[in-house]
Design a protein around this nucleic acid. Structure first.
Lengths: 199, 199, 199, 199
DNA sequence: CATGAATGAGATTTCATTCAT
DNA sequence: GATGAATGAAATCTCATTCAT
């Protein structure tokens, strides 16, 4: 790999990262190409050299955000064999996103609004959610097999758990006085383990 | 009531309604004063006669959306005495918002993104969520008193149920192939009743 | 005089006064019909009932300002027989406008800028200046006749004295640290009496 | 000098010059960004590329006008050693501004009105006036030293002479029938030399 | 590759004026 | 006489995109 090869990916990454930071800081409706360029420390013109238009940058940014969120969750649950502990780790990873990786979480929520009117963005998200439901589903399946959890349909359980985690993250974010991250984690675990309990 | 009295509220409502329809149709980032005026069948100038600026219209629109969503939920649960059936009605009301009152639900989600950068909007939402947690909490409390549910802290249960409903609504909206409204309702009820079950 | 007769002049005056106060407070470029109406405590529509348009109000306002300034100067010099003392009174009246009748003076200066592009306003001002040069000229003539001043052409002296007073008022207004009203008066009197001195 | 260096100053100058010409032609209250852009033969958008907003352009325009007026006066008096003749040249330079550099003079007067409500503009003007009083003061001081003029305080004399010149310029501008430039010059010189005469 | 100057369409906002009541 | 709702033109300002260098 000669050093020349890699300049394009570097620039793209630079631009996408700057976009995410802009979105996190000022919000979707205040995002301008100029701000992105300044934050990426490049000229305005270069943005259009690496991306067709603003929308293309947004799609790339959404993809990055999704990848990052997914990676976090996957990593957190990795290497843990006990299904209960693994689920607990996963819940904690998801909920802590809203507080510790706030930058990514905020941008994620902003994209929800845009997705409603943008098929490209919506599909990226639908794919992520399918993968996440399956990821959770696999953990649940193991728990079922090892006799820890009652028989449930894995993807259904995945949907329920994902929903609970998203909904609590929302409340953590925009209604921070309601409960703390620690409380949310506890409530969430309790609800999920009752949901999966054998009797 | 002379005919002159109350023209202002009518116009305001007209404008706010048009705004919500615009948001539902084109999305937050494509909202323009021009479109709002056309949809409300008024001149552009009049928008600034009744509202200080675009932001003021958005705040009013968010308030309307919140009120509408709340009213729906409250109405649906009204008059039902059995805590189980009441909770079921409430869950159904919430989830069907995402499909049947899609217009309001879409706008609601769009505001989430904006709220992150707009304290005024965030507080309106936080207030709504507090009221909803309490509403659910009261139903749960009755169920506890009548021996149907285990002892839980009402607001915590409210938070859990609200989160589940929000999260499932999201998946219903942007990942419609995952499950239907009927399925979502069933999963949700099951999860909640297991959460509240005495043993 | 039945009470009915006088409503129009009252309203006109009300509006013109409000205009002058608006001009004094916010400046020519920030003058709006709405502000005038609010300050006059009348509706916007009424302004166009009593005046053809905004320009007509401005012309009326300029006339009021001119009349007021002239009246002040004439009154101050009235009843004093000694030409020196009379001139001194007049100078003081003119200079104190810039500090004590600041409202009128500020508006007067604002009109200078507009006059350059508005024949109607310019003529009103030219007339005032002619009258003032003559007023001063008459005082000077008396002084010449009584042997106090050297022979000068009255209108020329009027022009010189008026110019000095205007120029010093300007410096008093926008360069207030340069000298005080008292100093300006002293300098001005000295300059004028030297100008009129016999040898 | 590579061709790229210094395009910004050129554009800025271009815009400021166009602004001054617009102000001279149509007046402050009729100044629009559109007119400025057309007169500068640039697009409207570029105005905001080089200046933050309309006010910033106005401040720059005022500065240009002040510099130009000052330069004229300084140049006219340069190289003349005799204090009398130098003062005469300076008076002539000032008064002829109102007729020969009418464009700048008109804009200057327009700014007086705005200055009353704009600290930034007022300070630019106050600085100019201080410099001019000192400039005149230095000439007067020389005349005093060489025994031509009586002992006067230089800045006070500067204020008086500046006032006289401003006031006469005003009358020349908006009351052109009163006297000609030549007459005004003569009157002014006479008044000033009498003011400075030893006995 | 990279820049930043330049554009032009379109956004929000302002405001004098009109008009039905 | 008087109101204030309504209009529409035009103002300022923003910004994605293009392009010569």
């Amino acid at each position: 790999m000669s050093p020349k090869v890699g300049i394009a990916p570097v620039r793209r990454r630079q631009i996408v990262d700057a976009t995410i930071r802009c979105l996190a800081r000022d919000g979707y409706s205040h995002l301008t190409m100029n701000k992105v360029a300044r934050r990426a420390r490049v000229s305005q013109g270069i943005l259009h050299y690496y991306f067709a238009d603003k929308h293309a940058i947004l799609v790339a940014a959404m993809q990055r955000v999704m990848e990052d969120l997914e990676r976090r969750v996957v990593q957190e649950a990795r290497g843990i064999h006990d299904p209960r502990r693994r689920l607990r780790a996963l819940i904690h990873a998801c909920l802590s996103v809203a507080t510790e990786a706030r930058e990514f979480w905020v941008v994620f929520v902003e994209f929800w609004g845009e997705m409603m009117h943008d098929r490209a963005l919506m599909e990226i998200n639908a794919d992520l959610y399918t993968r996440e439901r399956r990821l959770i589903g696999r953990i649940v399946t193991r728990g079922v097999r090892s006799g820890l959890f009652r028989r449930v349909r894995p993807e259904q359980a995945g949907g329920i758990i994902l929903a609970l985690v998203d909904g609590l993250s929302l409340q953590l974010t925009f209604d921070s006085k309601a409960f703390s991250l620690a409380e949310a984690s506890r409530f969430c675990e309790e609800a999920i383990f009752r949901y999966l309990a054998k009797k």
